[in-house]
């Protein structure tokens, strides 16, 4: 407990030594995203390709604990398709009528339903760390909002690996060199490469295409309301513009008798 207080006070007193150490990370290049800007929206085929990458690559280590299978309807999946996707995973079924939670020594499980949240790849943090050289693969639900310039950063990270670290850089065992990860050492092996995933729609399977697609998907998991929000925003601002114009006319009229 005292250690927490001490770290906080030190962080406060010293500003951030660590932040300085990390500040040699280059700023990620700004990418053009279909979902940015005032009329930005999610392209459904891109989202589906991104989901395919998450499902076939990322989901081995990373969870999406805030997203439910039913949310996949936003990507154009039908109710039955969502049911099938959910049923590929199992969740704890709870006790049976006699209060028994075990079947032959294992927890009672049932297939996941559309209303369930995405099932985590690991049962708990300890399991996750022990499979990942002690590192904890973070949940990706909010990742696109939890980093500065989130989508640009994620894209830069996914495409920023080097096979060999620059000369003089001491890379620890089991770590990989990345231009954009703070400290340049990341426990995640390069997750994407050319031809990593075969797209159903025939889109060329390049590293950059994979990165763009999965980042778009993660932008959706972080801000599923984005399209509704921007559409409502345009309508609201247009309405306000007209209303303000009318208020201006009214103000001119009412004040005209004063001068």
């Amino acid at each position: 407990m005292n250690k927490i207080v001490l770290t906080a006070v030190m962080a406060f007193a010293l500003g951030t030594g660590a932040a300085q150490a990390a500040s040699n990370v280059p700023t990620p290049a700004a990418q053009k995203w279909g979902f940015s800007g005032i009329v930005g929206h999610f392209d459904q085929p891109t989202l589906r390709r991104g989901f395919q990458i998450y499902r076939e690559v990322c989901s081995g280590c990373h969870g999406l604990r805030l997203v439910a299978y039913r949310n996949l309807k936003d990507l154009g999946f039908t109710g039955d398709e969502v049911k099938e996707i959910a049923a590929e995973h199992e969740v704890f079924a709870g006790p049976d009528e006699e209060g028994e939670v075990l079947v032959e020594g294992d927890l009672r499980m049932r297939p996941a339903r559309p209303t369930d949240k995405f099932v985590n790849p690991f049962a708990n943090e300890e399991a996750a760390r022990s499979s990942n050289v002690g590192a904890l693969p973070p949940d990706l639900s909010l990742m696109a909002k939890a980093r500065k310039k989130g989508p640009d950063y994620l894209y830069a990270l996914l495409t920023g690996y080097h096979e060999e670290p620059p000369e003089g850089f001491e890379l620890s065992d089991g770590m990989y060199y990345n231009d954009y990860f703070p400290g340049h050492q990341v426990a995640m092996a390069p997750p994407l490469a050319d031809e990593m995933v075969e797209y159903e729609d025939g889109t060329p399977a390049t590293l950059t295409q994979h990165a763009r697609d999965v980042v778009t998907f993660l932008a959706w998991t972080a801000s599923p309301e984005l399209q509704d929000r921007k559409r409502m925003g345009i309508k609201t601002l247009l309405f306000l513009l007209v209303l303000t114009g009318m208020m201006y006319a009214l103000k001119r009229k009412i004040w005209s008798d004063l001068h």
Partner: peptide, 25 residues
């Protein structure tokens, strides 16, 4: 009223556009 109520409402229009720009975009 009505001089400053209408002037405040007109100003409120601009302010709401500024505020809601951030909220929505």
């Amino acid at each position: 009223h009505p001089y400053y109520t209408v002037k405040d409402l007109y100003g409120l229009g601009w302010f709401m556009m500024f505020y809601l720009f951030f909220v929505f975009f």
